[in-house]
Design a protein around this nucleic acid. Structure first.
Lengths: 136, 136
DNA sequence: CATTTACCGCAACTCGATTGCAAAGATTAT
DNA sequence: ATAATCTTTGCAATCGAGTTGCGGTAAATG
């Protein structure tokens, strides 16, 4: 497991107070977080600073964003070595009961045969249902 | 190809002026449309009427909605026989250049092996890139 | 025909996302 | 070390998609 400082150094993002605290927070959680989640968890950091931090992180591939259909974009730290290329894709699982979003790193994404002359750049694959905790 | 009237009858949705015009519009286009797209295309029908019509259609499985990451939910008419079950899923392709969303009916979705005790209900699979028209 | 129910149009509102701006902090040049 | 420059931060305001309340109209029911 890399530390915040190591990740920021590798991804060439300048280390600032807000960035450290946001990244540390994301690393401490196993599930993707919305801006609101993060704002609530970090009461001493301003919403717009967190917002801009997330944008910076996304541009520099420190984190990736997921649109899970909850109405709020969620963010999760990229796996080590991730370049956010199509090959780094993974499914996300959105629990319709508890509103949590999981990264399914272990489930491979198949090769998708696109129509002629279509070019793949990215994908947002969200599987919805009940997580183990809510499926009782 | 079914007509608006036939579809509404089959799906047990009462036929009204707004519903007919919205459904006819969706059927006339091959790509998924946002609320805004539809509002712009139908200047004599009110935004909230179109909105409620889309909700009614979705509840009754006349159309399905897609979150393609453009910031706007898009809507497309369900294929004949679709029940919006997981087995009726298909990929959507979002063109990052022209902002259009395509239903990829011909590309099969594989079986996804979820973690233990997770239950699949639905999925939103959006592949992003360039469509044939924009990939030059 | 009277009554009830559903639908439509207008305007207002909610809330997540985003931006303008000035102050504070960090970096570079002198 | 100090001045000039660029970056980041915090606050407040704005934007826009989605949604809702409500009165009026149309359709269905008795």
């Amino acid at each position: 497991m890399q530390t915040e400082e190591e990740i920021l150094k590798i991804k060439k993002v300048k280390n600032t107070a807000a960035r450290t605290v946001v990244l540390r927070h994301l690393l401490s959680l196993e599930k993707a977080q919305s801006l609101k989640d993060i704002v609530n968890a970090l009461p001493y950091t301003d919403r717009s600073s967190i917002f801009r931090t997330l944008k910076t992180f996304e541009e520099n591939k420190v984190i990736h964003s997921i649109e899970d259909g909850s109405g709020m974009t969620k963010y999760a730290v990229c796996a080590e070595g991730c370049n956010c290329d199509p090959k780094d894709l993974h499914y996300h699982f959105y629990c319709t009961n508890c509103d949590k979003t999981f990264c399914l790193f272990d489930v491979p994404i198949p090769n998708i045969q696109l129509p002629k002359n279509f070019k793949l750049q990215q994908a947002n694959m969200v599987v919805k249902g009940l997580c183990d905790n809510c499926n009782r």
